[in-house]
Nucleic acid binder design. Structure first.
Length: 430
RNA sequence: GCGGUCGUGGUGAAGCUGGUUAACACAACGGAUUGUGGCUCCGUCAUGCGCGAGUUCGAGUCUCGUCGAUCGCCCCA
């Protein structure tokens, strides 16, 4: 017999974990709503071109995408990130024509990247993200960061650090690229092979390089802040002023450049600085993108967004002791003795109709093992259907805490059960 | 793409420098107790050690390959 297992880098959200996801999603959604964001759901796969844009040098786009074709002509890709699809939708559905801009949207769902899995990193993973498209204001950047910040605070994360930088507008960035390339060119053969490639493709990424981080040439590297033109400089300052006003602590990291190529002006990363997140300390990250909407054929408007890794959020929240899995437990358990036919199913259904989370015994098992199941389920009440009582239209209800058991007629059953459950709930609230 | 560690029943795991019946514990199931448990006692539960090949008289133990897990590098959320 052939046996299967889930593909590498994927995982099953088993019933005991699903509660965590539901709770997490609930928390994130309610905060997003609070900030005026509404949900958008875009397809899990898109035309490859949506993600693989011209001049994109990122690893994610060039090496990690799940791309397929069903007829040899079309090319589709499982989304590796959320922003591109949302922007595509914004343009396609002409959201830019709506009276109120920006359009503020949030999304969550699976993303796919063909990476080597490790702690806090999977090939299929869940991201929650926001995008606000159609307006540009330092307040939006700061508000977006504040939104994400309040989310992770709500999840109990305490030791986080916001790193922020500005890549400036096109002009600033172009100047800086040239300056950087000129600076590195004489040293090119001292740098790692990746950086040699980056020099021409996207010299900004050299700043990110961990291999060459200690190279002497990195010491006096020109910083983007010195290449920003006046408008870019002013914009960045305003963003920082907003963050100060919101009392969000941050550090300016002049070498922060981010992995996706579409960012302009504000870029930021929020990382967890304690705990055992391993190498995956980044909780959420994002920035502003000026050119993306027009790239997709929309007007020349700006957008801002971030994404957070849900697996990482759960992992870090649990490290902080936040309880995400308080799943409602069985309240009533229906047992059966002897030949009672379909009665257990009927009674369980009745209990559920009364509003109690109910489970019952499916297989014919010894009373002992049924009681063990009751014990494990944590049910407050056991309903015991006995063959002989049933002959008189009677049924037993047993309080599992006090061990008191009563026998009532089937007519009185609903009232009696309600009464006992009510008593128990009062007992618990004391 | 590169490197480290690991892979034994439902679960947690022992298994020493290869040596013949794969400990122990928990859970589960049955019984002592024919229809009222949670304690106790007894019993049952891996013809097999991720998978495949090799070395050997003999492999869970060694070698190689492979698949997976995990951690790190790279990169990223």
């Amino acid at each position: 017999m052939k046996s299967y297992q889930n593909p590498k880098g994927t995982y099953d959200v088993r019933p005991d974990m699903a509660a965590k996801y539901q709770q997490l999603e609930g928390i994130l959604e309610s905060i997003a709503h609070f900030y005026g964001y509404e949900e958008i759901r875009t397809p899990i796969f898109e035309d490859t071109g949506v993600f693989k844009r011209e001049n994109d040098s990122s690893d994610m786009v060039n090496k990690e995408m799940y791309t397929f074709s069903m007829n040899g002509k079309d090319s589709f890709t499982l989304r590796p990130e959320g922003t591109a699809g949302v922007v595509r939708s914004y343009v396609q559905n002409k959201y830019y024509a709506l009276a109120d801009q920006p359009v503020k949207m949030y999304y969550y769902g699976p993303m796919f990247r063909h990476e080597h899995p490790q702690k806090g990193r999977y090939r299929q993973f869940e991201q929650f993200g926001i995008e606000s498209i159609g307006a540009k204001s330092p307040m939006l950047d700061a508000e977006g960061i504040a939104l994400g910040y309040s989310m992770i605070k709500a999840l109990g994360l305490k030791n986080v650090r916001v790193r922020i930088n500005s890549l400036g507008d096109d002009e600033s960035r172009k100047n800086y690229r040239e300056k950087l390339a000129a600076y590195f060119r004489p040293h090119i053969h001292e740098l790692c092979t990746d950086c040699q490639r980056r020099l021409e493709q996207n010299p900004l990424r050299i700043l990110d390089c961990k291999v060459d981080a200690d190279h002497p040439v990195m010491k006096d590297v020109p910083l983007i802040s010195d290449s920003l033109n006046e408008p870019s400089k002013a914009y960045f300052k305003e963003v920082l002023d907003c963050l100060d006003a919101l009392e969000i602590p941050y550090v300016i990291d002049p070498k922060l450049v981010r992995g996706l190529d579409y960012y302009t002006d504000t870029v930021f990363e929020v990382e967890n600085i304690t705990g055992n997140a391993g190498a995956q300390a980044t909780v959420f990250a994002g920035g502003r993108y000026d050119g993306l909407v027009s790239y997709f054929g929309g007007p020349d408007v700006s957008g801002f967004g971030f994404a957070m890794g849900m697996e990482r959020l759960i992992m870090l929240a649990e490290d902080e002791g936040t309880k995400l899995d308080e799943m409602p437990k069985t309240e009533v358990y229906v047992m059966s003795l002897g030949n009672v036919g379909t009665k257990p199913l009927e009674i369980a259904t009745e209990c559920r109709a009364l509003g109690y989370i109910t489970d019952f015994n499916y297989a014919s098992r010894s009373l002992k093992s049924q009681f063990k199941t009751v014990e494990r389920s944590g049910a407050k009440v056991a309903v015991i259907i006995g063959e002989s009582e049933l002959a008189d239209n009677k049924i037993n209800i047993k309080n599992n805490r006090t061990k008191e058991q009563i026998t009532v007629s089937l007519d009185e059953f609903a009232d009696a059960l309600d009464r006992i459950m009510e008593e128990e709930n009062e007992e618990n609230s004391l």
